[in-house]
Design a protein around this nucleic acid. Structure first.
Lengths: 165, 165
DNA sequence: CTCAGGTATCTCGACATCAAGATATCTCCG
DNA sequence: CGGAGATATCTTGATGTCGAGATACCTGAG
């Protein structure tokens, strides 16, 4: 089955036969797929009254394990947003009663963001719902292919995640 | 080499051993990689004084071939943004002299967006620059792996691109 | 102990995006 | 032909994000 990137690459080969546009076969698909996934996630989370950005923060805290708290800085590296954005997110989640700010006992500059009970429940429910939807999307692939794909993607992501970026 | 998603999946397995989080191995990597790519593209385009969103629109027009024009609607399907966003983008690109609006001779509701000479040059330069950077990122993979990866991603994207969504 | 440099978080203003709805035009059935 | 419904684009207001800078605090060399 053909996709938009096949058409895009074919168009470049016609218009710019002098260029090697092979990289787009991979990277344009990554970008476009991510955009489609964003939309699908927005729909999936709507069932639970959450926005994708809320999910990202709540689940990062949920994954941290009891007592479900992380510093804003730790949340930054997991969510790939800027500090201003994170401050804003924490403000809004606090307003909704899903997290609360606590002073960091070891560093007076610092803050700890902790999940409330309500926040924890919401995160758990939304995760379960998300996985149902994601499994459907991945039904296009055999388990073996999924593993292959995950491995190849890891090779590309790892440099970003490990070399400070 | 381990990445953030390995850590994320391990954390879920510890916190929610009852759930099968396998789908995240693929889809979380797609989302995170796309985010890293956005940042890298922003840097790459800065050399040419372009924003990623400008690049997306200009290159869609460039690919269309002479006379480098498309309707806003056609641009929507290629860039995956809403119509309001596209109107705004066209306004701003017009202001910068990179595109201009022409009435569609066959449909008085319609508009054609055409690349200016300057817009065409910018698109060509930025594309060449982007490919240089993207090739570096893909140096992690052999050509064979790149082909495999592209094929697997196509399987996932194709349903979105073909079924109207 | 001190202070220069580093770090953690927050503030602020500009900007891009979206969703929903408005407007104008087209299509085609009856 | 007439008009209902489809389509193409634009408008508007709310919202989320970013980048740069401000503030408060920590750390380590001397």
């Amino acid at each position: 089955m053909e996709d938009e990137v096949d058409r895009l690459v074919a168009a470049w080969r016609r218009e710019r036969p002098d260029l090697d546009v092979e990289p787009l076969e991979v990277l344009s698909r990554v970008s476009r797929l991510a955009r489609h996934l964003d939309r699908a996630r927005r729909t999936a989370f709507a069932e639970h009254g959450l926005e994708p950005w809320e999910f990202d923060v709540l689940t990062a805290l949920r994954r941290a394990g009891s007592p479900y708290q992380l510093s804003p800085g730790q949340l930054l590296t997991q969510t790939l947003v800027t500090s201003g954005t994170m401050t804003n997110r924490i403000d809004r989640l606090t307003g909704k009663g899903l997290v609360k700010r606590l002073p960091d006992p070891d560093d007076r500059r610092g803050v700890l963001v902790r999940l409330t009970d309500d926040g924890r429940d919401r995160a758990d429910q939304a995760l379960a719902g998300l996985l149902v939807h994601e499994r459907e999307l991945l039904a296009q692939l055999t388990p073996g292919q999924q593993g292959e794909l995950a491995g190849l993607l890891r090779l590309l992501v790892a440099p970003f995640d490990n070399i400070p970026g």
